[in-house]
Write a protein that binds this DNA or RNA. Structure first.
Length: 780
DNA sequence: CCGATACGCATTTTT
DNA sequence: TGCGTATCGG
């Protein structure tokens, strides 16, 4: 075994280029890996971790932090392929999930329970909104979203309420923004979250930092656990994340961060590009490795992107190059209108698909704002080209789902204020705003949670009549029942019981409006999701899968983690932000107009403009074979036709790499059969195809979307089989398991629900599967 | 407590 | 324009 690993080691080191190998092999001190677009960043990270394991590090001594669940999952899978089962014990995950795991273990120390709720941003916004209201401030001035982002910024910089209130610069800035009371809102918000046993996303970082800072013995515990720390996408870290990494690594200095300053596009969320730019100053003697060979794109695309990014001033110098073909110049399309831009792009896709044999999944249309998607949808729909749009409401943001989840949250943590408010009167039970406000008032007065007031209304001097009291106690008993159930039964049982007993089912199953039908489906999906979750966990050997486990998992999931099913052969439509980290054979970057890209709002500051340019850089470098840029001379914005001029960014690209106009005129005439004369394309489009608008149902917003597939390896994983099918399993069968891949059945034992199989997987080693729960299909 | 209507506002969003 | 929220009236 050991020898085999050794040879594998050799083998994979040979798969790396010199720069990559140097980065993998250097482990004696801090290192910064600047990884140009498409230069094999993930490969370096995974091989480095595999290499550390070869060197004798135990997996639980390695901490690897990413920004997305997807990145963590993919990396873990790739490492598992190298080192097998040991990968399971790596501490690898998103900042937020790893920190929430630590915080749940240490929660008592900082005054939380291990069941604390994680508020998503709509919860925190709603809490801020009610605080603004309670303070009798004008919410036209104190816009909840704006206050939220000011508080979030403060937290990302580790500025707590006291420091916030004491900071003159911040106060001046709040004054300038006409929101001087922000500091008071922040303080109340902070207290209310604590009262509710809840943390928002930023708190997961803040409290981790505080825990390590205020309790050195706890910090020491983790410092001595994590012998080596790796961070992906370091350019996107904020000050809090950087500080925690520093807390964990400053003694030992075994830290490797990977990123690309040229792809820093999240400063609006607090990412601080200085973290990566100044890494070598903070970790003195840090080694700098540069990965400059791009394996993704043609030379032309790489050169064009280089010439663009050279216009930025603040960056770590690097020379990204490609040894692939020179490739075609970047096509620039110049459209009269937004609608025509859609037509040009759709036609070009059609053409490439038919003439060059590209699959639809080889195409991506990338735009700056989600609002631009509609035009492309229509253009593609008109030609019946398959597409999928990313963006929009995620599954867990849907009203009915949030409602159900709020009951779950209360069952696990009744102090959760946002969940409480959401369901106190849903389904309607005659507890109106007046009563809620009384409870809120008492809770504020006594500094307790809403639930505590509800449980002992008289102690907190709640002035309510007999009828209301009865209704409140009815609600209380309902929730107490759920609380009890959540302590005893498993997540799936409690979950389905809550869905039934809360009355939400009755509410939604009353009639068959399309909205209700879709809600029903969403709730069914949710319940199925819990079932999946329990099954997966149980398969891993967890006997009791509780509701609280489920909640802590889903509160950190996003729709990014959802593989849409049956979407393998479709054109991708998404914002450039969401395209980061992806690659496509053919990329269309659209809407290259002043005030759109770069966005109007980014033009006041140099830094923001540079970030927009980096965004454009990200867009171009997604392309492998062909990249096209387009702009429209006029476009509908907010219901008005607006004229626009080409983006300044077009001039930032060296013209040598562009194929500017003319050509697309020919395409337009030969392929497009819509009338050429279009005084007002929007109207023409409507009158020629009135059905386009009316026929198009708003399916995207009504149709249920699948919740994330828990731990599923890929969208193409086999359909789950049921216990009935799998009980026929015999020794010697070859099965394909959803997560572990292909393996051979070595042993079958037990009967019925207890039937267990030992399976030797090619990549995942030997596993025991409880057939009742295992998801696989027999393939031989 | 719901529905109709008016109003305002509108980048990007890994968790 | 088109959506989500606020508010008023029944």
């Amino acid at each position: 075994m050991l020898r085999k690993q050794k040879t594998m080691d050799k083998h994979y080191l040979d798969e790396l280029n010199d720069g990559q190998r140097a980065a993998v092999l250097y482990n004696d001190g801090p290192s910064l890996v600047i990884a140009g677009a498409g230069s094999g960043k993930t490969r370096v990270l995974t091989y480095k971790i595999a290499h550390l394991l070869e060197l004798g590090y135990d997996p639980w001594n390695i901490l690897a932090l990413t920004f997305t669940n997807k990145a963590a999952r993919e990396m873990k899978e790739r490492i598992a392929r190298q080192v097998g089962d040991r990968a399971r014990y790596l501490w690898m995950g998103t900042f937020h999930s790893i920190f929430s795991r630590i915080l749940r273990m240490e929660s008592q120390t900082i005054g939380f329970t291990s069941n604390f709720t994680i508020y998503d941003s709509s919860d925190s916004k709603s809490l801020i909104k009610s605080i603004v209201k309670e303070m009798q401030l004008d919410d036209k001035v104190y816009k909840p979203g704006m206050i939220q982002s000011r508080i979030s910024n403060a937290k990302n910089r580790l500025i707590l309420p006291d420091a916030y209130a004491a900071d003159g610069n911040i106060y001046r800035s709040d004054m300038d923004a006409k929101v001087p009371a922000t500091r008071d809102i922040y303080r109340r918000y902070w207290e209310r979250c604590r009262q509710s046993d809840a943390m928002d996303f930023d708190d997961l970082l803040v409290y981790t930092y505080l825990l390590f800072k205020d309790y050195p013995s706890i910090r020491d515990k983790y410092v001595s656990q994590f012998h080596y720390v790796l961070v992906d996408e370091y350019q996107d870290t904020n000050f809090a994340q950087h500080s925690i990494v520093l807390q964990l690594t400053q003694e030992r200095q075994r830290v490797c961060v990977v990123g690309d300053d040229a792809q820093s596009i999240y400063s609006f969320r607090g990412a601080n590009i200085d973290n990566i730019l100044k890494f070598t100053q903070i970790y003195r003697g840090a080694k700098l490795f540069k990965l400059e060979q791009n394996y993704r794109s043609t030379q032309t695309i790489v050169c064009a992107a280089n010439s663009l990014i050279a216009k930025n001033s603040e960056q770590i110098h690097k020379e990204v190059f490609s040894q692939k073909d020179k490739g075609d110049p970047i096509g620039v399309f110049n459209a009269y209108s937004d609608v025509e831009e859609g037509d040009i792009v759709a036609n070009k896709i059609n053409q490439l698909h038919h003439r060059e044999g590209y699959a639809y999944s080889d195409f991506a249309v990338l735009y700056r704002t989600n609002a631009q998607s509609r035009i492309f949808e229509e253009a593609l729909r008109k030609r019946t080209l398959p597409y999928k749009i990313y963006g929009g409401l995620s599954f867990y943001q849907r009203k009915e789902v949030k409602d159900v989840v709020s009951y779950f949250r209360l069952a696990v943590n009744p102090n959760d204020e946002e969940a409480f408010k959401r369901v106190l009167n849903y389904p309607a039970r005659g507890i109106g705003d007046t009563t809620l406000n009384k409870i809120l008032g008492a809770a504020n007065e006594y500094n307790v949670s809403l639930w505590k007031v509800l449980v002992a209304p008289l102690e907190y001097g709640l002035n309510i009549n007999k009828g209301t009291h009865t209704k409140l106690q009815g609600f209380r008993e309902l929730i107490e029942g759920f609380i009890l159930a959540a302590q005893e039964k498993d997540a799936y049982e409690v979950g389905s019981a809550i869905v039934r007993q809360s009355g939400i089912m009755n509410e939604i199953y009353q009639d068959r409006t399309p909205e209700n039908l879709s809600r029903q489906e969403n709730i069914e999906e949710l319940v199925n999701g819990i079932h999946d979750f329990c099954a997966t966990r149980r398969e891993e050997g967890n006997e009791h899968v509780m509701l609280t486990d489920y909640l802590s998992e889903i509160s950190l999931l996003t729709d990014q983690d959802t593989d849409k099913e049956g979407d393998t052969e479709k054109i991708t439509l998404m914002t450039i932000h969401s395209a980061k980290g992806l690659e496509f054979k053919n990329v269309f970057v659209v809407g290259l107009e002043e005030n759109l890209f770069p966005s109007q709002l980014s033009m006041n500051s140099y830094r923001e403009l540079e970030e927009e340019r980096r965004l454009f850089y990200v867009a171009i470098t997604r392309a492998e074979d062909h990249c096209f840029l387009s702009f429209a001379k006029s476009r509908f914005k907010y219901g008005k036709m607006e004229f626009s001029s080409p983006s300044r960014f077009l001039k930032d690209i060296d013209v040598r790499y562009l194929s500017v106009p003319q050509e697309e005129q020919a395409i337009r005439r030969s392929v497009d059969n819509t009338p050429r004369f279009q005084p007002s394309p929007r109207f023409t489009s409507f009158s020629t195809h009135p059905e386009v608008k009316s026929e198009r149902p708003r399916v995207e917003s009504v149709r249920p979307v699948s919740p994330p597939k828990f731990m599923r390896v890929s969208a193409s994983s086999p359909r789950p089989s049921t216990g009935v099918v799998s009980s026929a399993l015999q020794v010697g069968n070859v099965i394909e398991h959803e997560r572990f891949g292909i393996g051979e059945v070595m042993k079958v034992e037990g009967v019925g629900d207890n039937c267990k199989a030992t399976v030797k997987f090619r990549n995942a080693g030997e596993k025991q599967l409880l057939l009742k729960f295992a998801r696989f299909k027999v393939i031989g």
